[in-house]
């Protein structure tokens, strides 16, 4: 198992050294190294089976069933956003948001987090009364209410329709600008990666094939030539040669 040396490094920094993770005899990650600076927004791209979810689960400490070794150093305070909103259907929205909070002012903080994701006034709704996008916003509020130093997101917008996904992109950038956690976003969508992240890692067969720093203003659009260039690079690295959307 990996040793967690939390606390030895600056808050928010993620350090992975010689990480090995596999299931049975198949090694998904084999001697994997990664360093993410505090407050960096990193997108992790890759085809299915490239090991991106394995890496995220290792960082989240959710892989007790996997075999492996190596060193993982992540901030003490980290949150996970899953692909499904994963709200407890038997708890009202606010109770879902404050589920992990152990403080006296949990109620107020929960309400504030809901207001931040644009769901003020919905605190007493049941999760299944909300739309898919709204449920994922509640999941974001639940992840951010504990003021994490690291936010791990596993294809959080993968199950949403295109329009809702664009709105969620804006919301995530906005929340990131305000709270400045370190973010590791796993996605298979190149546009999403270039739109959101400041650094894009492309994972291929368990190693980093491309490490690209995105040097674009906060307001990004498909019309920027530099945006298209980044997109082209990543698509080519993924083995897609034509450039239509």
């Amino acid at each position: 198992m990996a040793t967690n040396l939390g606390g030895l490094t600056a808050t928010g920094t993620v350090r992975v050294h010689r990480l090995v993770r596999g299931f049975g005899s198949r090694a998904v990650l084999d001697g994997f190294d990664l360093e993410i600076g505090s407050g960096e927004f990193v997108a992790l791209l890759g085809r299915s089976g490239s090991g991106k979810s394995t890496l995220l689960r290792a960082l989240a400490g959710l892989d007790s069933d996997a075999d492996g070794s190596g060193m993982i150093d992540v901030p003490e305070k980290s949150s996970v956003v899953f692909q499904d909103a994963r709200l407890l259907p038997w708890q009202r929205v606010l109770d879902n948001v404050v589920l992990g909070l152990r403080r006296s002012n949990a109620h107020e903080r929960g309400l504030a987090a809901l207001a931040e994701v644009g769901l003020a006034g919905r605190e007493n709704a049941w999760p299944n009364e909300l739309s898919g996008g709204e449920q994922q916003r509640v999941a974001l509020a639940r992840a951010l209410v504990s003021e994490p130093e690291l936010l791990l997101a596993d294809e959080p917008f993968g199950a949403l329709d295109a329009l809702t996904r664009l709105r969620m992109h804006d919301l995530l950038r906005e929340l990131y600008a305000r709270h400045r956690p370190t973010v590791l976003l796993v996605t298979h969508d190149v546009d999403e990666a270039v739109t959101l992240a400041d650094r894009v890692l492309l994972l291929d067969s368990g190693r980093i094939a491309v490490d690209l720093t995105i040097d674009l203003p906060a307001q990004r659009s498909h019309r920027q030539p530099q945006f298209l260039a980044y997109r082209e690079t990543l698509l080519r690295a993924l083995g897609v040669n034509h450039s239509e959307g």
Binding site: L62, R86, L88, L99
Partner: peptide, 13 residues
């Protein structure tokens, strides 16, 4: 089991 995983990720006592 996804809810159990959620509990683990939130480090619920």
């Amino acid at each position: 089991s996804r809810y159990v995983e959620l509990g683990e990720s939130l480090r619920l006592p």
